[in-house]
């Protein structure tokens, strides 16, 4: 056998039959000991890293949020002052409201577009592979690239608006990206562009998992296709809805780069989000404590969505 990277102790195992049995026994006992200890040793670094860098850091952030830390961290706990400040901060509430508007519309339209495309693609479409490739490629891009591209296209002076003027629609105006009341919707447009193809892929995988026999039986019973989809197929995609919803909600809550590139939180602070609030207070404005408090609220928001989901999943698993 060629030398393996597994080291010397393992070559002991390859005792030829002529080797004295005692030696083989002690060698394999040694080998067995190695096999008990080694698995624990190799996962130990990950275990330590994840305990410290996931759970330890969450506690650390929680601690910071209870202190008066500004530019430098202080570790003397003073209570909930940062949360009081956060909750009386108008910018924070505006950011949370933006997250609600963006998150709600982003999730709704991504699910709707994704489901529509998946159902249509599942009708024995020619060139399905090519279409799938087109729908899904935005998911391979950075949100910064997506933001840059859409920022240019939505530019009122030279982008879509000018294009429509050139086509002869001289009254056409599309200035959402510079309009404080509408800018948040441009984030939705770009976000849905990037993520809906992914939702399509999830739904399509779900549709392919449904037994054709059920649909055929319903057809024999005289049900038409829209009814079959409404009553049988789409309800059976429930688990896919759940995981798509979770992923989209997660993307929405931590959404940061798309807004940075597309609108830079503007015009003014019209497209500010909690993630941007957290970044600016924690890293640029020397408000560590307030940044930590806002991060904890973001975590709580994520947990508020994830925990009920996990709970219902686990319950249905136990039932099933």
């Amino acid at each position: 056998m060629s030398p393996s990277p597994s080291g010397a102790q393992l070559t002991l195992h390859e005792g030829s039959p002529s080797m004295p049995s005692l030696q083989t026994a002690s060698a394999s006992r040694f080998g067995r000991l190695v096999d008990v200890v080694l698995p624990k040793i190799v996962v130990a670094p990950t275990m330590v890293a994840s305990l410290v860098c996931f759970y330890g850091f969450v506690l650390w952030t929680a601690w910071l949020s209870l202190t008066e830390s500004r530019i430098l961290p202080k570790y003397e706990i003073v209570g909930l002052v940062q949360y009081q400040e956060l909750f009386s901060n108008e910018r924070w509430w505006a950011a949370m409201k933006n997250l609600g508007v963006f998150g709600g519309l982003f999730i709704f339209f991504s699910l709707a577009v994704g489901l529509l495309l998946a159902v249509f693609l599942d009708q024995k479409i020619r060139r399905e592979g090519a279409l799938r490739t087109i729908y899904l490629y935005p998911m391979a891009l950075s949100f910064i690239v997506t933001g840059t591209a859409w920022k240019w296209m939505l530019n009122p002076g030279l982008g879509l608006e000018k294009l429509m003027h050139d086509f002869g629609f001289s009254d056409f105006t599309f200035d959402w990206i510079v309009n404080p009341d509408m800018a948040i919707y441009t984030v939705v447009i770009a976000g849905v562009w990037q993520s809906s193809g992914f939702v399509m892929a999830l739904f399509l995988a779900g549709l392919r998992g449904i037994d054709d026999a059920i649909i055929k039986a319903a057809q024999v019973d005289g049900a038409n296709l829209p009814t079959i989809y409404r009553r049988i197929v789409i309800p059976s995609l429930r688990p896919v809805f759940f995981s798509a919803f979770m992923i989209l909600a997660h993307i929405a809550i931590k959404s940061f780069d798309l807004v940075m590139a597309l609108t830079n939180a503007g015009p003014g602070l019209a497209t500010d989000l909690p993630s941007i609030f957290m970044y600016q207070h924690g890293f640029n404005r020397g408000q560590l404590g307030l940044g930590a408090a806002s991060a904890m609220i973001m975590l709580a928001t994520a947990a508020a969505i994830v925990v009920p989901f996990l709970y219902s999943e686990l319950r249905s698993q136990r039932r099933g």
């Binding site: 330890g56 940061f256 560590l288």
Partner: peptide, 9 residues
Amino acid sequence: LPFQVVILP
């Protein structure tokens, strides 16, 4: 975890 909750530490 949203990464915002670990970046300060």
